[in-house]
Design a protein around this nucleic acid. Structure first.
Lengths: 166, 166
DNA sequence: AAGCCATACGCAATAATATTTCGCTCAAGC
DNA sequence: GCTTGAGCGAAATATTATTGCGTATGGCTT
């Protein structure tokens, strides 16, 4: 489990697989400039070390009938650790809630939700979220349109940073 | 490009590939209950029809040195369409900005940003975002901890919905 | 500085998988 | 009741993944 620092080839592998997770290993090897076997070994190592947490197909939510995306700012009455984790557990159990982040500042949590239509979301909001114990305030914002939605991290920023630190 | 309604097998394929985008086609075929060739044909069709927009490795941002995640609420001075798209174009050009959504309500946009550290983000905030023309207000919220971060859509919700509509 | 060890590479061989081809079946439409 | 088209599965082929092994390279000890 050596926290082996990644070399440039490893970072390239991660960047390529983040951009196209279904690339064949031979294509990946070609792009990063080594032969297929060591490339595959590196990928396996990156997976086992946790640098790669999984692979996912990116599906078109709207085409599938999820017309509505909502950000919800949630404030809790009590911020005791037990109450925070209780709320987080609730969020993990709600399928409509895709993301839940604890924030500093005024609100305690921000939730990103996906729902088939507005009434589905309203039903969730009034029937589930607002009736949850310890939830003091909820402010929802409907997504009018999405301008950018890139998964993962910007590897070019990482490379710039490493170049300057070197 | 018939907007062919998806049958249960197609939906299962999408659900499986969303959960594990690197599953082999034979494994996928086994899970959805058909043989490999038609399964692959379906996957290709789903890709070409745009139901699958891509495949991505999920990388561990923190392990890679992106310690900081920030939500930024942005208000613009002018909401004329040209000004909105101008701002969206800016967001698309900033690598630190991973998501940009236009919202209803008080704020105009919410941005999800990833940065190696706080000073990187501050540099972006003061040097880029705040100096952008037409940006009237920015309120940033640091993510203290992430409780849930599921990519994609909840297919179980979709199935429930189809069951009730049927 | 020479030798040793660990690490990672590439090549070649094998196993598994992807992909194409082909013929069959079923169901809708005429 | 025939025709047509869409979708399936089996078999064959092409591509890819995976394993085993010999070799080079860099760091560390002696």
């Amino acid at each position: 489990m050596a926290s082996t620092r990644l070399d440039p080839i490893d970072r390239k592998i991660l960047a390529e697989l983040q951009a196209d997770g279904r690339m064949t290993n031979v294509e990946l090897a070609k792009r990063v400039g080594i032969s297929a076997p060591p490339c595959l070994r590196r990928v396996r190592t990156l997976e086992e070390a946790g640098y790669i947490k999984g692979y996912h197909a990116e599906v078109d939510a709207r085409e599938l009938g999820f017309e509505v995306q909502v950000f919800a700012s949630v404030g809790l009455a009590s911020q005791a650790e037990a109450d925070l984790t209780a709320f987080e557990d609730r969020c993990r159990a709600w399928p409509l809630v895709r993301e839940c982040h604890m924030l500093n500042g005024e609100v305690d949590f921000i939730l990103k939700c996906a729902a088939p239509d507005l009434s589905s979301f309203q039903r969730f909001l009034t029937g589930e979220l607002l009736t949850t114990p310890n939830v003091a305030s909820v402010k929802t914002s409907l997504v009018i349109r999405g301008a950018k939605d890139e998964p993962g991290v910007p590897f070019d920023v990482l490379e710039e940073r490493l170049a300057s630190t070197a």
